[in-house]
Protein backbone atom coordinates (compact mmCIF):
# COMPACT_ATOMS: atom_id res chain seq x y z
CA UNK A 1 0.00 0.00 0.00
CA UNK A 2 1.77 3.08 -1.24
CA UNK A 3 -0.06 6.12 0.05
CA UNK A 4 2.78 8.33 -1.13
CA UNK A 5 2.17 7.54 -4.78
CA UNK A 6 -1.57 8.02 -4.30
CA UNK A 7 -0.91 11.53 -3.04
CA UNK A 8 1.61 12.21 -5.79
CA UNK A 9 -0.98 11.25 -8.37
CA UNK A 10 -3.57 13.45 -6.72
CA UNK A 11 -1.33 16.51 -6.65
CA UNK A 12 -0.33 15.96 -10.26
CA UNK A 13 -3.98 15.81 -11.28
CA UNK A 14 -4.82 18.93 -9.28
CA UNK A 15 -2.44 21.10 -11.31
CA UNK A 16 -2.49 19.08 -14.51
CA UNK A 17 -4.17 19.56 -17.86
CA UNK A 18 -7.48 18.04 -16.77
CA UNK A 19 -7.84 20.61 -14.02
CA UNK A 20 -7.05 23.33 -16.59
CA UNK A 21 -9.62 22.03 -19.08
CA UNK A 22 -12.42 21.74 -16.54
CA UNK A 23 -11.55 25.08 -14.94
CA UNK A 24 -11.98 26.73 -18.35
CA UNK A 25 -15.29 25.00 -18.98
CA UNK A 26 -16.48 25.85 -15.46
CA UNK A 27 -15.56 29.54 -15.82
CA UNK A 28 -17.93 29.67 -18.78
CA UNK A 29 -20.62 27.88 -16.79
CA UNK A 30 -20.03 30.26 -13.91
CA UNK A 31 -20.94 33.20 -16.14
CA UNK A 32 -23.99 31.42 -17.56
CA UNK A 33 -25.29 29.46 -14.60
CA UNK A 34 -23.70 31.16 -11.60
CA UNK A 35 -24.21 34.79 -12.55
CA UNK A 36 -27.00 34.77 -15.14
CA UNK A 37 -28.99 31.70 -14.08
CA UNK A 38 -28.86 30.05 -17.51
CA UNK A 39 -28.96 26.25 -17.52
CA UNK A 40 -26.44 25.31 -20.16
CA UNK A 41 -26.17 21.54 -19.92
CA UNK A 42 -24.37 21.30 -23.24
CA UNK A 43 -21.05 22.91 -22.37
CA UNK A 44 -19.37 19.86 -23.88
CA UNK A 45 -20.97 20.78 -27.21
CA UNK A 46 -19.13 24.09 -27.10
CA UNK A 47 -15.91 22.30 -26.15
CA UNK A 48 -16.46 19.90 -29.05
CA UNK A 49 -16.91 22.65 -31.66
CA UNK A 50 -13.75 24.28 -30.27
CA UNK A 51 -11.74 21.07 -30.42
CA UNK A 52 -13.02 20.03 -33.84
CA UNK A 53 -12.69 23.63 -34.98
CA UNK A 54 -8.93 23.40 -34.74
CA UNK A 55 -8.61 19.71 -35.63
CA UNK A 56 -10.69 19.92 -38.81
CA UNK A 57 -9.17 23.25 -39.83
CA UNK A 58 -5.65 21.83 -39.66
CA UNK A 59 -6.14 18.25 -40.85
CA UNK A 60 -8.86 18.68 -43.46
CA UNK A 61 -8.46 22.23 -44.72
CA UNK A 62 -4.75 22.47 -44.09
CA UNK A 63 -5.02 25.84 -42.38
CA UNK A 64 -2.78 26.81 -39.50
CA UNK A 65 -3.63 26.02 -35.90
CA UNK A 66 -4.10 29.72 -35.19
CA UNK A 67 -6.75 30.05 -37.88
CA UNK A 68 -8.33 26.97 -36.31
CA UNK A 69 -8.67 28.84 -33.01
CA UNK A 70 -10.65 31.52 -34.80
CA UNK A 71 -12.80 28.91 -36.52
CA UNK A 72 -13.52 27.22 -33.18
CA UNK A 73 -14.52 30.49 -31.51
CA UNK A 74 -16.71 31.48 -34.45
CA UNK A 75 -18.39 28.08 -34.39
CA UNK A 76 -19.13 28.42 -30.68
CA UNK A 77 -20.75 31.81 -31.27
CA UNK A 78 -22.93 30.33 -34.01
CA UNK A 79 -23.88 27.43 -31.75
CA UNK A 80 -24.82 29.79 -28.92
CA UNK A 81 -27.01 31.86 -31.25
CA UNK A 82 -28.65 28.73 -32.61
CA UNK A 83 -29.50 27.43 -29.16
CA UNK A 84 -30.30 30.77 -27.57
CA UNK A 85 -32.63 32.23 -30.18
CA UNK A 86 -35.47 29.76 -29.65
CA UNK A 87 -35.06 29.12 -25.93
CA UNK A 88 -34.00 32.27 -24.10
CA UNK A 89 -37.53 33.67 -24.17
CA UNK A 90 -38.86 30.49 -22.54
CA UNK A 91 -38.71 28.82 -19.14
CA UNK A 92 -35.19 28.00 -17.96
CA UNK A 93 -35.67 24.23 -18.46
CA UNK A 94 -35.98 24.58 -22.21
CA UNK A 95 -32.42 25.81 -22.54
CA UNK A 96 -31.29 22.84 -20.45
CA UNK A 97 -33.09 20.36 -22.69
CA UNK A 98 -31.99 21.95 -25.93
CA UNK A 99 -28.34 22.36 -24.94
CA UNK A 100 -27.97 18.78 -23.73
CA UNK A 101 -29.66 17.57 -26.91
CA UNK A 102 -27.39 19.72 -29.07
CA UNK A 103 -24.25 18.42 -27.39
CA UNK A 104 -25.34 14.86 -28.16
CA UNK A 105 -26.15 15.85 -31.76
CA UNK A 106 -22.64 17.21 -32.16
CA UNK A 107 -21.05 14.06 -30.75
CA UNK A 108 -23.21 11.76 -32.90
CA UNK A 109 -22.46 13.76 -36.03
CA UNK A 110 -18.74 13.86 -35.26
CA UNK A 111 -18.54 10.10 -34.82
CA UNK A 112 -20.76 9.24 -37.76
CA UNK A 113 -19.47 7.43 -40.81
CA UNK A 114 -21.29 9.99 -42.95
CA UNK A 115 -18.90 12.79 -41.94
CA UNK A 116 -15.90 10.51 -41.66
CA UNK A 117 -13.86 12.54 -44.16
CA UNK A 118 -14.05 15.67 -42.01
CA UNK A 119 -14.10 14.36 -38.46
CA UNK A 120 -12.41 10.99 -38.70
CA UNK A 121 -15.49 9.16 -37.43
CA UNK A 122 -15.27 7.37 -34.12
CA UNK A 123 -11.48 7.25 -34.28
CA UNK A 124 -11.28 11.03 -34.37
CA UNK A 125 -8.44 13.24 -35.56
CA UNK A 126 -4.85 13.83 -34.51
CA UNK A 127 -1.63 15.54 -35.63
CA UNK A 128 -2.80 19.15 -35.62
CA UNK A 129 -1.18 20.56 -32.49
CA UNK A 130 2.44 20.74 -33.67
CA UNK A 131 2.52 24.52 -34.14
CA UNK A 132 1.61 24.89 -30.47
CA UNK A 133 4.37 22.61 -29.23
CA UNK A 134 6.89 24.19 -31.65
CA UNK A 135 6.69 27.25 -29.44
CA UNK A 136 7.60 25.25 -26.35
CA UNK A 137 10.44 27.08 -24.57
CA UNK A 138 11.08 24.22 -22.12
CA UNK A 139 13.76 22.10 -23.71
CA UNK A 140 14.22 19.57 -20.89
CA UNK A 141 12.64 16.17 -21.10
CA UNK A 142 11.34 16.07 -17.55
CA UNK A 143 10.61 18.67 -14.90
CA UNK A 144 9.88 17.97 -11.23
CA UNK A 145 8.02 20.21 -8.83
CA UNK A 146 7.82 18.36 -5.53
CA UNK A 147 5.50 15.44 -6.18
CA UNK A 148 4.51 16.70 -9.62
CA UNK A 149 6.42 15.44 -12.64
CA UNK A 150 5.85 16.92 -16.07
CA UNK A 151 7.34 16.48 -19.50
CA UNK A 152 8.54 19.61 -21.28
CA UNK A 153 5.47 19.62 -23.55
CA UNK A 154 3.08 19.09 -20.65
CA UNK A 155 4.72 21.88 -18.71
CA UNK A 156 4.30 24.20 -21.69
CA UNK A 157 0.64 23.21 -22.02
CA UNK A 158 0.01 23.67 -18.32
CA UNK A 159 1.79 27.04 -18.24
CA UNK A 160 -0.27 28.43 -21.09
CA UNK A 161 -3.43 26.78 -19.75
CA UNK A 162 -3.25 28.24 -16.28
CA UNK A 163 -2.26 31.58 -17.83
CA UNK A 164 -5.49 31.59 -19.84
CA UNK A 165 -7.48 30.50 -16.77
CA UNK A 166 -6.01 33.41 -14.84
CA UNK A 167 -6.73 35.88 -17.65
CA UNK A 168 -10.36 34.75 -18.03
CA UNK A 169 -10.93 34.80 -14.27
CA UNK A 170 -9.60 38.34 -14.15
CA UNK A 171 -11.80 39.32 -17.09
CA UNK A 172 -14.88 37.92 -15.39
CA UNK A 173 -13.91 39.67 -12.15
CA UNK A 174 -13.83 43.02 -13.95
CA UNK A 175 -17.04 42.29 -15.85
CA UNK A 176 -19.05 41.29 -12.80
CA UNK A 177 -18.17 44.57 -11.11
CA UNK A 178 -19.38 46.58 -14.10
CA UNK A 179 -22.91 47.72 -14.92
CA UNK A 180 -22.98 44.89 -17.48
CA UNK A 181 -22.42 42.32 -14.76
CA UNK A 182 -25.03 44.01 -12.59
CA UNK A 183 -27.65 43.49 -15.28
CA UNK A 184 -26.75 39.79 -15.52
CA UNK A 185 -27.02 39.28 -11.77
CA UNK A 186 -30.35 41.08 -11.80
CA UNK A 187 -31.63 38.79 -14.58
CA UNK A 188 -30.74 35.79 -12.44
CA UNK A 189 -32.96 37.27 -9.71
CA UNK A 190 -35.96 38.41 -11.71
CA UNK A 191 -36.04 38.86 -15.43
CA UNK A 192 -39.31 40.80 -15.46
CA UNK A 193 -37.95 43.36 -13.05
CA UNK A 194 -34.96 43.92 -15.32
CA UNK A 195 -37.21 44.30 -18.33
CA UNK A 196 -39.45 46.73 -16.47
CA UNK A 197 -36.37 48.89 -15.91
CA UNK A 198 -35.65 49.19 -19.61
CA UNK A 199 -32.96 46.55 -20.06
CA UNK A 200 -33.23 44.05 -22.91
CA UNK A 201 -32.97 40.92 -20.77
CA UNK A 202 -33.13 38.61 -23.78
CA UNK A 203 -30.10 40.15 -25.40
CA UNK A 204 -28.09 40.12 -22.16
CA UNK A 205 -28.88 36.43 -21.69
CA UNK A 206 -27.74 35.85 -25.24
CA UNK A 207 -24.45 37.66 -24.56
CA UNK A 208 -23.92 35.54 -21.47
CA UNK A 209 -24.62 32.35 -23.41
CA UNK A 210 -22.26 33.38 -26.21
CA UNK A 211 -19.36 34.40 -23.97
CA UNK A 212 -19.72 31.38 -21.68
CA UNK A 213 -19.91 29.21 -24.78
CA UNK A 214 -16.71 30.73 -26.17
CA UNK A 215 -15.05 29.86 -22.89
CA UNK A 216 -16.32 26.32 -23.41
CA UNK A 217 -14.66 26.37 -26.84
CA UNK A 218 -11.41 27.51 -25.19
CA UNK A 219 -11.73 24.50 -22.87
CA UNK A 220 -12.09 22.41 -26.03
CA UNK A 221 -8.89 23.96 -27.44
CA UNK A 222 -7.05 22.98 -24.27
CA UNK A 223 -8.54 19.48 -24.39
CA UNK A 224 -7.60 18.97 -28.03
CA UNK A 225 -4.10 20.41 -27.77
CA UNK A 226 -3.22 18.71 -24.49
CA UNK A 227 -4.30 15.27 -25.68
CA UNK A 228 -3.04 15.89 -29.26
CA UNK A 229 -6.06 14.02 -30.58
CA UNK A 230 -9.83 14.48 -30.56
CA UNK A 231 -12.09 11.49 -30.15
CA UNK A 232 -15.84 12.07 -30.26
CA UNK A 233 -16.64 9.89 -27.26
CA UNK A 234 -14.50 12.07 -25.01
CA UNK A 235 -17.11 14.76 -25.65
CA UNK A 236 -20.06 13.04 -24.01
CA UNK A 237 -22.44 14.69 -21.54
CA UNK A 238 -20.31 13.50 -18.61
CA UNK A 239 -17.86 16.28 -19.42
CA UNK A 240 -20.57 18.88 -18.75
CA UNK A 241 -21.63 17.21 -15.50
CA UNK A 242 -18.01 17.10 -14.30
CA UNK A 243 -17.66 20.80 -15.04
CA UNK A 244 -20.86 21.52 -13.09
CA UNK A 245 -19.63 19.42 -10.19
CA UNK A 246 -16.34 21.36 -10.17
CA UNK A 247 -18.15 24.72 -10.33
CA UNK A 248 -20.60 23.92 -7.57
CA UNK A 249 -17.84 22.45 -5.43
CA UNK A 250 -15.84 25.67 -5.65
CA UNK A 251 -18.91 27.90 -5.40
CA UNK A 252 -21.06 29.20 -8.26
CA UNK A 253 -21.18 32.98 -8.68
CA UNK A 254 -17.81 33.47 -6.97
CA UNK A 255 -14.67 34.73 -8.68
CA UNK A 256 -12.41 31.79 -7.89
CA UNK A 257 -15.12 29.14 -7.55
CA UNK A 258 -14.61 27.43 -10.91
CA UNK A 259 -10.81 27.42 -10.60
CA UNK A 260 -10.57 26.23 -7.01
CA UNK A 261 -13.42 23.82 -7.68
CA UNK A 262 -11.66 22.24 -10.63
CA UNK A 263 -8.41 21.85 -8.69
CA UNK A 264 -10.12 20.21 -5.72
CA UNK A 265 -12.34 18.14 -7.99
CA UNK A 266 -9.39 16.61 -9.83
CA UNK A 267 -7.45 16.12 -6.63
CA UNK A 268 -10.35 14.17 -5.13
CA UNK A 269 -11.02 12.25 -8.31
CA UNK A 270 -7.39 11.18 -8.71
CA UNK A 271 -7.16 10.42 -5.02
CA UNK A 272 -10.13 8.05 -4.93
CA UNK A 273 -9.10 6.57 -8.25
CA UNK A 274 -5.51 5.73 -7.28
CA UNK A 275 -6.54 4.68 -3.80
CA UNK A 276 -9.12 2.23 -5.13
CA UNK A 277 -6.72 0.92 -7.75
CA UNK A 278 -4.04 0.38 -5.10
CA UNK A 279 -6.54 -1.45 -2.92
CA UNK A 280 -7.70 -3.60 -5.80
CA UNK A 281 -4.22 -4.48 -7.03
CA UNK A 282 -3.10 -5.32 -3.49
CA UNK A 283 -6.18 -7.50 -3.06
CA UNK A 284 -7.41 -5.42 -0.16
CA UNK A 285 -10.80 -5.33 -1.85
CA UNK A 286 -12.30 -8.59 -3.05
CA UNK A 287 -12.75 -8.91 -6.80
CA UNK A 288 -16.43 -9.65 -6.23
CA UNK A 289 -17.01 -6.11 -4.96
CA UNK A 290 -14.85 -4.15 -7.33
CA UNK A 291 -12.60 -5.02 -10.23
CA UNK A 292 -10.05 -2.93 -12.07
CA UNK A 293 -12.46 -1.69 -14.72
CA UNK A 294 -15.10 -0.92 -12.13
CA UNK A 295 -12.88 1.65 -10.42
CA UNK A 296 -13.62 4.11 -13.20
CA UNK A 297 -17.34 3.49 -12.76
CA UNK A 298 -17.20 3.98 -9.00
CA UNK A 299 -15.48 7.28 -9.68
CA UNK A 300 -18.46 8.45 -11.76
CA UNK A 301 -20.84 7.31 -9.04
CA UNK A 302 -18.91 9.40 -6.54
CA UNK A 303 -19.24 12.44 -8.82
CA UNK A 304 -23.01 11.89 -8.91
CA UNK A 305 -23.29 11.53 -5.15
CA UNK A 306 -21.02 14.53 -4.64
CA UNK A 307 -23.13 16.71 -6.91
CA UNK A 308 -26.32 15.71 -5.08
CA UNK A 309 -24.88 16.19 -1.60
CA UNK A 310 -23.43 19.58 -2.49
CA UNK A 311 -26.70 20.82 -3.99
CA UNK A 312 -28.68 19.59 -1.01
CA UNK A 313 -26.43 20.60 1.86
CA UNK A 314 -24.02 23.22 0.56
CA UNK A 315 -25.34 24.68 -2.67
CA UNK A 316 -23.09 27.71 -2.21
CA UNK A 317 -20.02 25.44 -2.55
CA UNK A 318 -17.37 24.89 0.04
CA UNK A 319 -16.27 28.53 0.11
CA UNK A 320 -19.34 30.36 -1.16
CA UNK A 321 -21.43 32.81 0.82
CA UNK A 322 -24.95 31.60 1.45
CA UNK A 323 -26.37 35.11 1.39
CA UNK A 324 -25.23 35.76 -2.17
CA UNK A 325 -26.19 32.35 -3.43
CA UNK A 326 -28.11 32.20 -6.65
CA UNK A 327 -29.86 28.91 -6.22
CA UNK A 328 -31.73 28.71 -2.98
CA UNK A 329 -35.09 29.92 -4.13
Amino acid sequence: MDLRSVLDNSFSAAVGVDAVIYALAAIGLNLQFGYTGLLNFGQVGFAAVGAYGIAVSVTYFGWSLWVGLGVGLAASVVLALLLGLPTLRLRADYLAIVTIAASEIIRLVARSVTFNDYTGGSAGLSAYADSFYDLNPYSGARYSFGPVQLSGNDLWMVTVGWGVVLALTLMLWVLMRSPWGRVLKAIREDEDAVRSLGKNAYWYKMQSLIIGGMMGAVAGFAFAIAKTSVQPDNYSTDFTFFAYAALILGGAATTWGPVVGSIIFWFLLAFTDSLLRQLVSNDKLPEAIISGTQVGQVRFMLVGIGLVLLMVFRPQGIFGNKRELALDE
Binding site: G304, I305, G306, L307, M311
Partner: peptide, 10 residues
Protein backbone atom coordinates in the same frame (compact mmCIF):
# COMPACT_ATOMS: atom_id res chain seq x y z
CA UNK B 1 -33.01 19.91 -11.64
CA UNK B 2 -29.24 19.82 -10.98
CA UNK B 3 -29.82 17.27 -8.22
CA UNK B 4 -31.76 15.05 -10.62
CA UNK B 5 -28.77 15.16 -12.96
CA UNK B 6 -26.49 14.08 -10.11
CA UNK B 7 -28.86 11.20 -9.35
CA UNK B 8 -28.93 10.26 -13.04
CA UNK B 9 -25.12 10.06 -13.14
CA UNK B 10 -25.09 8.05 -9.91
Amino acid sequence: LVISIGMAVL
